[in-house]
Amino acid sequence: MGVLNSILGLIFDGFFAPFRALGPWPGMIVVSLVTGIVMLLIFKKTSNQDAIKRAKNQIKARLLEIRLFKNDTGGSFRSQAAILGANFRYMGHALRPMLVMFIPVLLILAQLNLRYGAASLRPGEQALVKMTLAEGASAEETATSLQSSDGVVVETPPLRIEEEREVDWRIRAEAPGLHLLTFNVGGTAVEKSVSVGQNAPAKVAALRARTFMDLFLYPGEKPLPKNSPVSKIEIVFPPLRLPLFGGTVHWLVAFFVLSIVFGFALKGVFKVEI
C-alpha cells in the first residue's frame, strides 16, 4: 500500500503542479474532466456495449408500446414488466464496469481528499495533535514528548488519556511551510508533517497511520513502521470548503457533479453507451 501511495502521490503531484498557484478550482475542474474521460473509457472497455445498447433499445420500444396501446390494460402491464426486466439487464451490464472502477475511484478520492479535504493552518492558528499509541501501551506510563521544527510551536504539555491510549498536544502555526513534528515515544522518534500557509490544492496530510484502511484513505505520508510504538498521529486541520458564488461547497460534491457532467457531455465524442 505504501509503495502504491508513493507512486500515486508522484502522479498526482505532477498532475497538480501546474495548478498550484491558480487556486482550488482549475485543478478540480481538470481532474474532474480527466476522471470523467477515464471512467468513460473504462466503461467502454469493460462493459458489453452491444448488450447495453440492446437493453436500452428494448426499454425505449416498450415505452413506445405503452404510449401507443395505452387503452390495452393487459398489454400495458406486460410492457411494464418487460421494461423492468430490461432495466435489470441494463443494470447487470453496468455492474462489471462499476466494480472495475470502484478501487481506482477510491484511490483518486483519497488523493483528492489529501489536497481538498483540509485547510493548511494559517500562521497564528492553533491545532490539536492527537497521537494514539500501539495496542497494549499505556498513555500514562509511556514517556512522551513533542518537538517541533521552526515555524510551529508546541503550546501545551502532553495530555494523556489512558483509556484511549491517546496523548494530545496543542500546536500553533507561526510561519508558512511544511514543518515537522518529532514525537519522542519511550525513546523512539516518530515524525509527522504539518502544513502551514499553503493554498489548495497543496497537500495537507492530516493523518499518519499504520492500518491498511487508514493508509488507503490517508495517503499523504509514509506509513508508520509495523513495530512503531505509535498506531496513528492526527492533526486536526480546519475543514476546507471550496468558494462558490459567495457560498462554499464541499470538494466531494464539486468533484462528483463535475465528473458526471463531463462524462455525459463527452459520451458522444468517445462513442460510449452508458
Partner: peptide, 22 residues
Amino acid sequence: VYLDSAAAVAKVALPDQEFILK
C-alpha cells in the same frame, strides 16, 4: 473534559470539535 493526571492541562470535547486548554 479530559484532564491530564499530572499536568495542568485539559481537553474539552464538544460534539463536533475538541481543543486543549492549559
